[in-house]
Each structure stands twice: as structure tokens, then as C-alpha cells.
Simulated assay, not measured.
Amino acid sequence: MKILFDETYTSTDGKRSSRNIWYGDADLTVDGEYGKTINLKEDFMDDLCEIIKKDFSKNAANEPTETNWYIYGSGVTQDAIEANVRPSIMVREKSDEFITNFNISDHDFAVNIDAILLFKADFEKRLASL
């Protein structure tokens, strides 16, 4: 996984500062029984948490009011109409609360949504303890 951009935007009134960090080439997919699915392995969650923790420590002196991470997968999967879908995970921290969102293919939704929801809940709990 490599960092693509790290940018901070401040509102015109100076009350809000949003740090946005984009990562690319993440190992977001694994081969499943019926095709590629999103990587839900524990070591991948560990890697994500370490990256977020490291990024937090870099901004301790000038803390933004929110931080957003965009993690793009290195590969693509196809949906039912044969469009390519690049899986991504987005994370937002604001006021010490984390929200995550996973962008996945319809195939991944059909065969993997229960596991994704469990991973998402565990991931948010882990992030809350950073």
C-alpha cells in the first residue's frame, strides 16, 4: 500500500480543517470460492489500524477537526453488467468517532455481505481504541 496524497483543507471561516489521505495499491481482494472478494483477514485489519495510527501521530501538533482515509485496492472485480469495480475502504474520524464505508461489487455483496458487516463493526471498534 502506498500513499498517493495527503492534503488538508481549511474552511474559509477557519473553523473546520479536514485532512484527507489517499492510499493506493492496497491488497483489498482475495480469491474466493466464486471469484474475488474483499480481504477480510485479521492481518489486513491490523495493517489498516497501524496506518491510521501512524497518520494520527504525524498530525499531533496541528490536529484537524476531521480526518478521512481513502484506501483503494490494487485490483478490480466485475459486476453483473461486466463493469469493473475497484474496491475501496473509506474511514472518517471526527470528534473521536470513526465511521467506515466499504465500496464493493454486487458479487461481493451477494456472497460476502454478512462477513463484511462483521469486519466493519470489528474495525470500527478497534479504531475507537486507538
Rank of each mutant, 00 (worst) to 15 (best):
T8F: 06
T10N: 10
D13Y: 15
D13I: 15
K15D: 03
S18C: 15
G24A: 06
D27N: 10
T29W: 12
T29Y: 13
G32A: 02
Y34V: 03
G35A: 03
T37V: 07
T37I: 09
T37N: 01
I38F: 13
I38H: 02
N39W: 02
N39T: 03
L40H: 10
K41D: 12
E42L: 14
F44D: 00
M45I: 11
D46Y: 09
D47S: 04
L48W: 06
E50H: 05
D55G: 02
D55V: 01
K58G: 01
N59M: 06
A60M: 05
A61F: 14
P64F: 08
T67I: 12
T67V: 11
T67Y: 02
T67P: 00
I71H: 00
Y72V: 05
G73F: 07
S74V: 09
V76M: 05
T77V: 06
Q78I: 11
A80Q: 02
I81L: 12
N84V: 04
R86K: 01
P87L: 08
S88D: 11
V91G: 00
E93K: 15
E93I: 13
S95V: 05
D96K: 10
F98Y: 13
F98N: 04
F98R: 06
T100I: 14
N101K: 11
N101G: 09
N103G: 10
I104N: 01
F109C: 02
F109K: 05
A110T: 11
V111I: 12
D114S: 04
A115W: 10
A115R: 15
L117Q: 14
K120R: 02
K125F: 06
R126E: 14
